[in-house]
Each structure stands twice: as structure tokens, then as C-alpha cells.
Design a protein around this nucleic acid. Structure first.
Length: 362
DNA sequence: TCTGGGGTCCTAGGACCC
DNA sequence: TCTGGGGTCCTAGGACCC
């Protein structure tokens, strides 16, 4: 247990990343509530909040909230004499650049780093040899990010990725939480089941029906019962709620699919307009395909979301791989066309979103 | 309140093959 | 008339994550 086989993992999670970058780059934003995301268009905008800074969170604004709701909350605050929220658009290119610099900083401290998103990473710090030394390394990482990027991160340290991930979320922002192997089970027990990665809103509701709210409650069920209930995921829950996780830290892996989608400003069935947008999406997908080092694809997926939010996909796998925009356009159009007429859309519902994705990349 | 855009993984049925 | 077992591929949908 103690000794050469002990694994120590850190999860480094940037605090309110997009908003923090914008605050850093524009000093006059300092102290004001910020929401990075879709254009609110005076309360009529579609789309959602990507990231709210901590001041905006005091207004009840959070990630994935409809931007129109955020707008309403901002207006309500304004009427009470509080500063209105500043709505900023997403500058993904900038955040990707900052992310790469932060990842480089982390790589300067750890031999194996997994980028788990634009704003978070796992680092294998087993080499430090003890939790005390790991904590010191993580304080150095946080300080380096602060010094070189003027940003803060919250860090969790644990015996595996699962515990590290949940721990990093415990103290935010600018936190550091250490959970040793022998503390892991007790650490998890009082937490809501929703904190377990893989338990989302649907599973949370399903569990609540049986009176299960906390990790502790879920422990009443045997592995067999959980498997019966949730299939393969049930067995994983059984392990996770006991702090067990042996998934490796993966340096970098190839994407399995590349896709683009677009929500229209207005729902439509206009074939000319939709064909135009489809063409653009195909061009962007092919551009990204080659940028990622791939030459060909074999499977094409199109997605259509109707005005009532019902969403359908259609897939076609080609007998031979294809490599041209023209081929992609042809395939996607063949798949999408039935959604525009009565074949797949008997009520002629307007479409709010279309998407194009390619798989089986070569 | 009205729901983005980028992904991954799992399930389940049917086709097909041995 | 009743009818295998296993494996793989394809397709559609859904839950989940950031």
C-alpha cells in the first residue's frame, strides 16, 4: 500500500476559466458580474451561458443556463440598484491559446498529464512519493499559473482520477483539497450522488425515487442490484462510491469523430438556406479533419433538431472511405433532405439546428 | 425558462456470417 | 412447425461531460 506502488493523482481545474481570462485581459471588468456565452439580444437571444464569473453567480447565473434567463436575472438585479451583468461573446481561439500555456506549465511539473477539457487536467504525481510532497508540488503549480498567467486553479489530490476530480471541486475558487486513500470512502459518503461522475440529472432523479440522495444511501445496494438497475454503469457506480477507480491517465488520444452544428437565428424549412448552411458545415468539418491529421472518413452523421426540440440523427457508412468536401456534401444532403419534407417530417415542423459529423476516420 | 456546441460511451435491434 | 449460439457491423437514440 505505502511504497513504490502508491498512486497519487492531481486534478487541476481552472476557476471560471473563460470569464477569468476576460477579467484578466480587461481590467475595467474587475469586480463586475460577467457572463461569457451567447448574445442575449435584449432577452431574445438563443443559446446559453458558457461561464459566469463568481460575481454573476451571486445573481443565480451559471453555466448552461439559457442566456435569456441570465438576461432576466441581470435586469432584476439592475432594478434593485445592483450593477447589470456584462455579457461577453466566446473567444474560443483566445481560451485555447491560454489553455495550451497552462497545460505547458503543468507539464513542467509532471511527467504524465491528461488534458481532460480546455480548462482541466489530470497529472500523475506518484513520483512525489507522499501526499505531503504532492501537496507542495501542487502549490507550486498553482503559483506558477498565477505568476505566469494571472489565473487561479483549484486542485484536488487523491489516489485516483475519481477522487482527485471530486476533491478539486470541494474548495473553489483557488482551493486545494487532499484526500488520502484511507480517507476516500469517508470523504464520499456525505456527498450527493450527483457528485459522482456519470450520475447526471436523469440518474439522480431515478435514484431519488428510491430515496437515494447521498452516496451513503446508495451503498445500501449490492453490486448485483445496481447492475440489475443500471446495467454496466451500475457496476461502475458500485466501485466509484467506494472510492475505487483504476482508469489510467491518458496522455493524448485520437479523436473518434469530428463534427460541427449550428442553431439558426430562426427556425426554418427553407431548403436554399439550409443547403447553404449544410455546405458551410461540411467545409468546416473537412478543414478540421485535415487539421487533425486525417485524410478520410467512412461514416457520415447528420442531425436535425426541430422547433419543438425533438432531435433526430441519420447515419450512413460508405463502402469505401471518402476524402472530398463534395462527397461529404452529397451524403449529408441525401441524409438531411427527408427531414425537409413529409417523408421524415409529416407535420412540416421548422428546423432549429442542423449538424454534420464524420466518423471512422483514417 | 426554454434550452450551444464540442465530444464520448452505452444500449438495443437487425443483418449477416460462421 | 419450430427453429442454436456467438461475434461483428450498422443504425438510432439517449445520458453524460466540459
Amino acid at each position: 500500500m505505502i511504497g513504490r506502488s502508491m498512486r497519487i493523482v492531481a486534478h487541476i481545474d481552472m476557476d471560471a476559466f473563460f470569464a477569468a481570462v476576460e477579467e484578466r485581459d480587461t481590467p475595467r471588468f474587475g469586480g463586475l458580474p460577467l457572463a461569457v456565452g451567447a448574445d442575449p439580444e435584449g432577452g431574445k437571444g438563443r443559446g446559453v451561458v458558457s461561464t459566469a464569473n463568481y460575481k454573476a453567480r451571486e445573481y443565480g447565473i451559471h453555466s448552461a443556463m439559457p442566456i435569456s434567463t441570465a438576461w432576466r436575472l441581470s435586469e432584476a438585479a439592475r432594478r434593485q440598484g445592483k450593477p447589470p451583468v456584462l455579457f461577453l461573446s466566446v473567444d474560443m481561439k483566445k481560451y485555447a491559446e491560454v489553455s495550451q500555456r497552462v497545460m505547458a506549465i503543468i507539464r513542467g511539473f509532471a511527467p504524465v498529464v491528461e488534458e481532460a477539457g480546455i480548462d482541466e487536467a489530470y497529472a500523475d504525481l506518484s513520483f512525489a512519493g507522499s501526499y505531503e510532497k504532492t501537496e507542495a508540488v501542487c502549490r507550486d503549480i498553482k503559483q506558477a499559473i498565477r505568476d505566469r498567467e494571472r489565473l487561479t486553479a483549484s486542485v484536488g489530490i487523491g489516489p485516483n482520477k475519481l477522487i482527485a476530480k471530486i476533491a478539486s471541486n470541494e474548495k473553489k475558487p483557488d482551493g486545494l483539497t487532499v484526500v488520502r486513500e484511507q480517507e476516500a470512502e469517508a470523504f464520499l459518503e456525505p456527498l450527493p450522488v450527483r457528485k459522482i461522475p456519470g450520475i447526471g440529472p436523469k440518474t439522480e432523479a431515478e435514484l431519488a425515487k428510491q430515496g437515494v440522495r447521498l452516496v451513503r444511501d446508495l451503498k445500501r445496494f449490492s453490486r448485483e442490484e445496481l447492475q440489475e438497475w443500471f446495467g454496466k454503469r451500475g457496476a461502475e457506480f458500485y466501485e466509484m462510491i467506494r472510492g475505487q477507480d483504476d482508469t489510467p491517465i491518458q496522455e493524448n488520444y485520437e479523436p473518434k469523430s469530428i463534427g460541427e452544428e449550428e442553431t439558426f437565428d430562426q427556425d426554418t424549412l427553407d431548403a436554399i438556406f439550409i443547403g447553404d448552411r449544410l455546405k458551410d458545415l461540411c467545409q468546416e468539418v473537412m478543414q478540421r479533419l485535415s487539421a487533425e491529421g486525417f485524410r478520410q472518413f467512412r461514416t457520415v452523421v447528420v442531425k436535425a433538431r426541430f422547433a419543438d426540440f425533438e432531435t433526430h440523427t441519420r447515419t450512413h457508412t460508405l463502402p469505401q472511405p471518402a476524402d472530398s468536401v463534395a462527397a461529404l456534401e452529397l451524403e449529408t444532403w441525401k441524409l438531411l433532405l427527408p427531414f425537409l419534407d413529409r417523408r421524415e417530417n409529416p407535420k412540416r415542423k421548422p428546423i432549429r439546428l442542423i449538424g454534420v459529423r464524420v466518423e471512422k476516420l483514417q
